[in-house]
Simulated scan of single mutants.
Amino acid sequence: MTVKAYAALLRGINVGGKKKVPMGELRPLLSGLGFGDVRTHLQSGNAVFTTAADDAGGEDALAARVSEAIEGHFGFAVDVLVRDGAYLKAVADACPFPASALEGKQLHVTYFSEPVDASRLDGLDRAAFLPEEFRLGDRALYLYTPDGLGRSKLGEVLSRPALFKGVIATSRNWNTVTKLVELTGEPDHG
């Protein structure tokens, strides 16, 4: 039986006192679903777990299980994306910006529930936001904000719900992106 590591990315929890999901309650909830090696990272909705790859039913099925369990336990719905470690590593490796030369707060990845057609972004005047930039990737958007996301005009525009209507989107700064790669990576047997 092959065991695979996954990250569950919860969207919009523990922000401004709304949709509170304490990580101390999330870990046993996920363990109760039969997942192993459950760990959480920060309070912003990052959980890592393992499960038998054959039993998983795919990332969307895992996300639905996690979302249903959260709603059943906490009483409110939360959008959840689940991605395996190989995907998370591929997204990090494909970063079009010089990540090693930047601070974690300057680089973000928005993960999408499905591929996003670049035509959704055709109306943006990219030059108007320079030096801020973005690039689309595999079900992901890379965002470079030299002054951080809190002051980013481009980040504000890209976070408008109408822009990615019908798609679940959740963002993580580069420190979290790399930590999730580490937490879902294959154990070193060397």
Score class of each variant (00 low, 15 high):
V21K: 06
W174D: 04
C95S: 05
L163A: 03
T50S: 14
L183G: 03
M1T: 13
E133N: 10
L26M: 12
V181W: 07
L33S: 03
R83Y: 04
G58I: 01
L180E: 09
T145Y: 08
L62G: 06
A52Y: 08
D125W: 06
G185M: 05
R39Q: 13
E103L: 13
G36Q: 10
V15E: 08
L62C: 01
K89S: 12
V3Q: 14
F164L: 15
T40F: 00
L26S: 02
A8M: 01
H189M: 12
V116C: 10
A127F: 00
L136T: 04
G185L: 00
G24K: 15
T110Y: 13
T2E: 13
R160P: 00
E182D: 13
A99E: 08
A7G: 05
A47M: 04
R39I: 02
D138M: 07
A92W: 05
F129A: 00
L10I: 01
G137D: 10
I168V: 15
C95W: 01
G24N: 13
V66H: 03
I13R: 11
S44T: 12
V157I: 09
P115S: 05
M1F: 12
L62M: 09
T145H: 09
R27L: 01
K89F: 00
A86L: 06
Y142N: 10
Y144P: 09
D117C: 08
A94L: 04
S44V: 09
D55Y: 06
Y144I: 04
N14P: 10
Q43M: 07
L88T: 05
